[in-house]
Every structure is written in structure tokens, then in C-alpha cells.
Design a binder for these strands. Sequence first.
DNA 1: CTGAAAGCGCTTACAG
DNA 2: CTGAAAGCGCTTACAG
Lengths: 335, 335
Amino acid sequence: MSNLKAVAEHSKVSIATVSRVINNDPKVSKVTVLKVQASISALEYKPNRVAQRLRSSKGKTKLLGLIIPDIQNPFFVDVVRGVEDYAYQHNFAVMIGNFGQDEKKEKLYLDIFQSENIDGLIVAPIHGKDKGIENLVKKDIPVVCIDRGLTEIDVDVVKVDNENGAFNAIDHLLSMGHKRIAFISGNFKIPTYIERLSGYKRALDKYGIAYDESLVFARNSDYKSGFEIANKILELENRPTAIFSGNNLLTLGALEAIHAKDINIPEEISIIGFDDMPWSISLNPPLTAVRQPGFDMGKKAAEMLYERMVDPSKKKEKVILKTELMIRKSTARIE
Amino acid sequence: MSNLKAVAEHSKVSIATVSRVINNDPKVSKVTVLKVQASISALEYKPNRVAQRLRSSKGKTKLLGLIIPDIQNPFFVDVVRGVEDYAYQHNFAVMIGNFGQDEKKEKLYLDIFQSENIDGLIVAPIHGKDKGIENLVKKDIPVVCIDRGLTEIDVDVVKVDNENGAFNAIDHLLSMGHKRIAFISGNFKIPTYIERLSGYKRALDKYGIAYDESLVFARNSDYKSGFEIANKILELENRPTAIFSGNNLLTLGALEAIHAKDINIPEEISIIGFDDMPWSISLNPPLTAVRQPGFDMGKKAAEMLYERMVDPSKKKEKVILKTELMIRKSTARIE
DNA sequence: CTGAAAGCGCTTACAG
DNA sequence: CTGAAAGCGCTTACAG
């Protein structure tokens, strides 16, 4: 790789001048700019971002960290795409860390990203009291939380109204006559699930149905857990007539369990999933689901991060987007 | 952030010694090591990876680039997970670039990653004559191609036997009596599709059926294209009795088109997809698909990249993994 | 076993 | 408008 020095020699100016040309310093004379630019393209010079970043820790080199809980979850993939979309348009590179719901791994990525001098971070905290992220915020590193916030500290966040999303789903089920509705949840350390549970309870309340703890199952938020929990539910003696599953992967896992037992949806059991998927219509049957605008969330988060980088003293902002209940064919009315 | 100097002062040694401790230089005395380590933890010192990388471009800081065509495609997500799995175990950070089938974007990521001094790159080239990647290889930057190779230059690659994968799928269809099999493909610039087409042709040959070009449709490898092409196919006057779709997303899009028209699978049309998905069993009907071991491919690629970094003069290697036809319920025998 | 010094490729006051 | 020089946080010969 050619470097500043090579370009400087080629165009017979100092490296300082070359640097100025690269950074569009208006003080450089037209002639010099042209000369240097010619050398730059002749030598195919590309600035070394590592050196740039080391030198000026001021967002010059545009590196953005993105830490997500599970890249297998299509919702987070949408988030990634949204972030990337904004980043690409604004010439940021994105460094992605996928911690797979593993707290140690999340911490590792937090450390690495910091050591990489990222200009800012978008992260879905593993829980509401995430010390690692709190520290970053305290150090005034721009941080935007996505999907979940932080309880102990004021921070920018983009999330969805989980409470209402869950409420609407359960309300829909209750309105169709269901009374025993199982909830397949992820770990209740994760704020989203707490909120979804409270929406579940509020809907029950509305219909005067007592909350039955034995209908709520929390494990990891992955395919396997969805499969296993659904199996358990299907074997309950007084089997619930409907399932509300807490995320994409749990839904897909539950679906496999139901199909493996040849139980018909929605005739024998209804199911609503939190998180819609592009192919929900092609599932058996077309899945009724709570849609979250993942792409928009990612994009918005990137935008807010950028604004925070530009103005670090800006008031922290909470953006709460709406969910939408996509009614398809996985729920049926019962007596 | 505290730096080397702070640690040096705290433990009353030179920064050179602190650096040696960090890098496990055996020459440092036990006493000194202990003293320095105490300071390191007291100050919560974390080496600045940017500075490390700038100083020694020898894989010390362990940063790996991963460029994939489409993060929405679950197959590539598996690849990412495989790469990450290996990387995490070997203390590499992974920088991911998703180019969304956009050649300009791929080039941009190639440039950025180079400017970031990555130690090595795993990439699925957009086509076989990708100059940008060729250049990296020529500069002796460790590169492993995944899913697709390069035609003009010798390079490490991990891929799948696409020709046989497609052959088996078509053979299965032909053995069930199908004669008009449409192929929904991605762009034929992409080597995988060329190979899949040739498997398609070889199977036809085996059954003595003439290749009919009008049954082959190539566009982008995304959901929307799958949907649109399937719509076209379904409206053909002499409608094919089966569809072979070239990737995950195309399959899902095609499925939506078929369902939207209330056409029954497999009674009215059979379909086999290239790429299996965890939730194939929950599709309507359970999808017959060609399975690629994405996770293993990613893992293997990361491993090969590591070996290449350790021994740059190592002979280039081609690893070709097998596909597996997962027979479920989306195909039926016809007269 | 340890330290002083050079240098990785840049940016940015400072001086002219 | 331009250049010489310091410095970002490290590593690594070189010397002792």
C-alpha cells in the first residue's frame, strides 16, 4: 500500500499538504489540490484508516460498532440491514458483534470495540443493568440502545411498544374465546420479555381472567427452546388452546413441535408469534404475528447515533415505535 | 482510557516492559510480570488495538474481514455464525460487510477493510473474475473465498458441490415423472448458479429430456425476484409441473406467489429449493430442499484463513463439501 | 532482564 | 497557502 509519503514525493509537496487535500482543507490552493489528486489516483492511494483513527479520535474515520444478541433471529438481521443502510450512505464502516445471548461474549465485544476506537455503538443490552454499556455511556462514547433500554442510566434508545404489542396479540386471542393461553418467553432478564409479559397480563385483566403462572415458560430465546417448551405445553393435561410465543425463533421452534405431533393449527391449537417474518404467509398455516419494524429501528438508531456524535450534549432521546398485529390464519375462534 | 504510559508509571517500569508483559515475552522476570499485571488490573488497562495494528501489521491484533452478498439469506447467516464461532475461540474480532448483491458496495468494503489493515478476509465474490479480490490475493493478504471461487487466480476456497446438489434435486423430480421443470435462478454472473444450471442440464440429459431455455429464469437472488418469477411461471400457458429454485430467498418468494394464487403444493405443482432452512418443516407444505452446511463452511473458511495467515506460502486449497437432499413433502409423483 | 529510541501512517497546531 | 515537527499508543531491534 502506498502511503502519504509516497504521494507527497510523487507530487512534490509535504505530507501535511497531502493530508489537507484528503481532508478537503479549503486553504489548499487549487493548483496544489489538482496536482495532489493526480498523484493520489496515479498511486491508487487509500488513506490508512487505522492511522487516521489512532491520530484523531474524533469520528474522522467513521467506524461504528453494532452488537446484537442473535444474528439467527431475522428481526435482528433487519436491524443490521437498517443500520448498514444508513452507515453506507454516510460512509461509515460497521463492525458487527453477535453475542448469541452469551453475556461473556457481549462483554468481550464491548472491550474489543472500545479498543478499536469505534466512534459510536449501537447495542441491544443483554439486560437492563448492563454495567459494560453503562461504562461506555459514562465515558461519553456515543451509544444508542436498540430493542431494549438501560434502567440505571439515561441513554438514547430505539425500541418498540412491547407492552401494547403483546396486549394486542393476547386481546385478539381472548376475543376469540381463548382462556388458557400459554406464553413461550425468553429469559426474563431481558427487558422486552418483561414488557411483553405485562401486556399479556393486562389483556387477561381486561377479560377478567386470572393470571396463571404455570402457563408462562421462560428459557432462552432460540429455536431449540421454542421446540422444547412447545413440546412440554402440548403434553399438559389441560392443554392450553393457544400459544403466544415471544420471538421469531421461539415461534419457529414451537411450530416444528406442533407439526411433528401432527396437531392442526388453528383447529386444535392457535398460535401468535411476536415478530413477523417475510415468509410468514408461507408457513403452515400463514402465521398471525406481531410485526416490529426492524429495518426502521436500525436506521433510526444509526441516525440517532450520528446525531449524538455530532452533538454529545444533546438530550437523550427515547424513540418508541409501534407494532402491528398481522392477522393471518394461525388463530381460530373456540367455544 | 488508560494507556501504556499510565501502566508504566504506576508500576515504575518502562513502557517497553509493560508491552512485553502484555505480549507474554518470556524474558521478563517473574517479579516484574506480577508487578505490571497488578497495575494493569488496577488501572483496568486494555491495549489499544488500533495502535497495535498500526504498529505491527502481522496479525497481532486479530481482525478478520467477512464480506457476504446478502445477510438476509439464512444460508449466509449460518456462514457468519461459523466464521464467528471460530473467530471467537481464537480471539479474533470480525468485521462484517454485507454488500447486498451490489458490486459497488462490495468494492467499497474491500477498500475499507484493507484500510483497516485486516489480517485476513473471507469473502463470497460477486463473480468469478472479481478484480478487487484478485488484487488482495496478489498483495499476499490472506483471503479465503466462500461459496464461490475465482476463475483467474489460484485462491483458497470453501464451497459446496453445486452441480451435484442441483443434479440430485432435478433427478428426484424427473424420477417422479416431471418433465417440465422451471429453474428460478439468480444472476448467471454468480458461479454457483452456473454450476447449478449445469447440474440441472445433466439430470435432464440422463432422462433424455431436451433442455428448454424458456424454462430458466435468472434475476436477482432475493425474495422479490422469487415472487415475481414464480408469478410469471404460474401464468405460463403450458405450466411447468415443478419448480427448482436457486436459493433460500427465491424459494420463499416463490412460495408466497404460489400461496397467493391458492395453488396446492405438491398436488398442483412441486417445488424443491436450493438451501435448506431450520424451519423448512413448518412451511406449507414441509419443503424438500438441498441442504448446504453453511455453519461448517464458515468455520472451515475461518480455519483455513488462519492457516494461511500462519503460513502464507502454503499451497492453496479447495474444499468442496457435499450437499444433502432433504426430502419432505413439497414434491409429488405425476403421470 | 530492562530501557531509550525509532517508527507505523496519519493530523494538526505553529510558524512563516 | 505550505512545511517542519510533535504526537496518537503501541512494538521491537539495539544496547547494556
